[in-house]
Design a protein around this nucleic acid. Structure first.
Lengths: 419, 419
DNA sequence: TTGTTTTATTTCGGCGTCCAAAAAAATGTT
DNA sequence: AACATTTTTTTGGACGCCGAAATAAAACAA
């Protein structure tokens, strides 16, 4: 309750409501919009026709009629959907081994992709933003989309992002700290840009894919080259006070535990991440500084195979990971009692090895009353979910901050008044 | 964004906006309401006069004019405030050593109090609700307020409450579990009733007392006979999916650590709560079951004195508490990065003994980047804050769910239409 | 073919709440 | 007493919602 209510708010809210129904369920007829939003048919007509005039929505061409189900009688429906040309957005995923970019249209369909294998670790912090801007320019050139048609850029990174400042406060993918990213893109391309944590974007993607399931209070834990978490609280992804994400991976498990990439000792990541598993299994000292390079996929497959063969060092590495993860989850549950915990990422391939130890730790670490209401679920791969989530979030933002505002006609009139 | 917007929503929202301004800043003139809410003078006149007709607000009697500041010219203001008779609420605090009750008027002023020293631990779960109902009846009789004038009862308890079911899922103050509370009060007195965690109510009280300071993302940690936490996320107190509170006290610190009242081992509470400190200091085994009785105040004062004298067992107990609390906070910060952590309750008396160990643990347990933005603050006593917070929450609820709805006149008209 | 039934969408008139501007109220100042 | 200043109320217009009636576009039936 912070904003005063007037006809302006009513318009914004109901336009948004209609757009949200469309984002969630895809193209639908006006009747269905009424069903989803609770608005009267009269209002739906008014609002949808304005959105169409504004170029945000469009009626489906009658050519590909629905034709699904038994042809019912009565006037046929006209499907309405987002106009793909309403706006474009760009999603960028930054990881240790390079950049991944995607361009999407107003419906969220991906028009073009681009990958670049830059090793970012030693990148000059002053130059990194420009590098990303150049990659985006190249992507747009390939798709022949002018930058003026792009409404927003979303950037997903591992580590702590400050979305207000548009910087990457700390990331395992970089030696440097406080690396500015947004500024270069906004200055060079003139497109608003937002930096966010990659695990948060997975959470965003999950909400987009199944609001029913992930819309309450849930935690998404990403296991792989690192350990990240996206937190969904009351249906929305939680971004901390400065926009920094939750750092489950760098939550302490045991004081004086193994050395983590963040420089502290005993973080969950220092037990569960790829490099940690390899370190245990190869018998290195736990104070051995972790490598800053990307770990080859084959190495992890080999480790899993070794564990499945019963090689003691490998088995014990996964046991330690399971215990650390279990106690980490127990602590998370004590603080937030989420109704669902999603384990995602390549690290979940070894879940069979991890799970028994995880469960035992969970049982030891939290009272039954709290544990009972939490459902733990494993989603093997979530790599592309990061891109999907980033696109989703960017489009929702455009919906809320631009499309919902209202009749362009009116704003044009106001501007003309001034001149 | 879930509710459709129409004139009904506009009215509710703006009435609520006006009431919230009043709750936060106290009596004010119509001009000031305009300033706080952003509404035009015309609308303020309309809304406030309706609220006055509804008996929710009242104009201050001109007798005690403001007279503050230099008499300015122009038409003098008329102060408006809540009508004390608009509604009453009752707050009940349940703790190990008894019940504490308070009756408040529509402005939140306390009209009557009552305390009863019932030992609840072995109370019959089936009877407890009735016992509370009887106490409320006695309180109302004393104040000569009929129960029909009471709009809501709020109950604050230690432990896990299920506010949806109106039960006390688990509490250190009771041997039994799933104790029903709301039902008896709603059935016998006909007043809506809500059960909530006591630390959450402290958080509610803090928000009420200084929204500026506590309105963002903050954690309030209560240290005393137990350890509780109230979480404020984006300006509102977080109640988990089932209405259960955060259970920071029962977050694991070390696997296989000391036995806790909850039956698990190594909880933060098992290091920091009164009984835990005494157990360490008196040299008992850490697997010794904690006493379920209230601990005399004098025992804690004696322990503090011993530590200040430098007696080793006592000093080391506080050191262990500091370390556990520090790592607990470090884990909390990793998950949520609150911008403020408030330490409250009688346990903070010994903060000087605890603090150095707490700080050291905090440093070892969380990366600098996250820790830097957290302010830790100590508020010595917060006992009455629980009652204040409970009253506050009840009144806000009445504002939102009853007062904001709208002109009684209209609803009466509707009812007459039916008959 | 033509009328009937059914369902979807649009049009029309009324209602509630907001706002800006003008008017009224209440006091100080000259 | 006339003017200045500030607060509050009144008045008339705008906007967006809704219900009811009208219109549109099909399937079905004779």
């Amino acid at each position: 309750m912070r904003e005063k209510a007037d006809s302006d708010l009513v318009r914004r809210q109901n336009r948004l409501l209609l757009m949200e129904a469309l984002r969630q369920h895809g193209a639908m007829a006006r009747v269905d919009m009424g069903r989803h939003t609770g608005l009267s048919p009269a209002s739906i007509t008014t609002i949808s026709s304005q959105l169409i005039t504004d170029g945000i929505l469009e009626e489906a061409s009658a050519t590909h009629a629905p034709a699904e189900g038994p042809q019912r009688r009565g006037r046929p429906t006209t499907q309405i959907d987002f106009n793909p040309k309403s706006a474009n957005v760009v999603a960028v995923k930054v990881s240790i081994d390079g950049l991944e970019l995607a361009l999407a249209d107003g419906r969220g369909a991906i028009l073009a992709r681009r990958t670049s294998r830059t090793t970012t670790y030693d990148a000059d912090p002053a130059v990194f933003g420009k590098l990303v801007a150049d990659e985006i320019t190249a992507l747009l050139a390939k798709a022949r989309v002018p930058s003026s048609r792009v409404a927003r850029v979303g950037i997903a990174v591992q580590g702590v992002a400050d979305s207000q400042a548009g910087t990457l406060v700390w990331s395992p993918a970089f030696r440097g700290r406080n690396i500015s990213v947004s500024a270069a893109i906004e200055d060079r391309l003139g497109i608003p840009c937002r930096v966010a944590n990659d695990a948060n974007m997975i959470a965003e993607g999950l909400i987009g894919s199944d609001r029913e399931r992930y819309g309450g209070t849930a935690a998404v834990i990403f296991m792989g080259y690192g350990v990240g978490m996206g937190l969904i609280i009351n249906g929305r992804v939680y971004h901390g006070p400065t926009g920094a994400a939750a750092e489950f991976g760098h939550m302490n498990h045991l004081p004086d535990g193994p050395l983590c990439r963040c420089g502290r000792r005993g973080c969950v990541e220092a037990y569960v991440a790829d490099y940690s598993l390899l370190r245990w299994a190869s018998g290195q000292a736990m104070t051995q500084a972790p490598s800053s390079n990307a770990i080859p996929h084959e190495d992890m497959l080999a480790l899993e195979a070794a564990a499945h063969r019963g090689e003691e060092a490998a088995v014990s590495a996964y046991a330690k990971a399971g215990e650390a993860l279990g106690f980490g989850l127990a602590r998370l549950i004590a603080i937030l009692t989420p109704s669902r915990i999603v384990l995602a990422g390549p690290g979940t391939r070894a879940m069979a090895l991890i799970r028994p130890h995880l469960d035992r730790a969970l049982e030891a670490g939290v009272v039954d009353e709290l544990r009972r209401n939490v459902e733990i679920e494993v989603v093997p791969i979530a790599t592309d979910m990061i891109i999907k989530g980033t696109i989703d979030r960017a489009l929702r933002h455009v919906d809320r901050e631009i499309f919902a505002l209202g009749p362009l006609a009116k704003r044009v009139r106001e501007l003309e008044d001034i001149s």
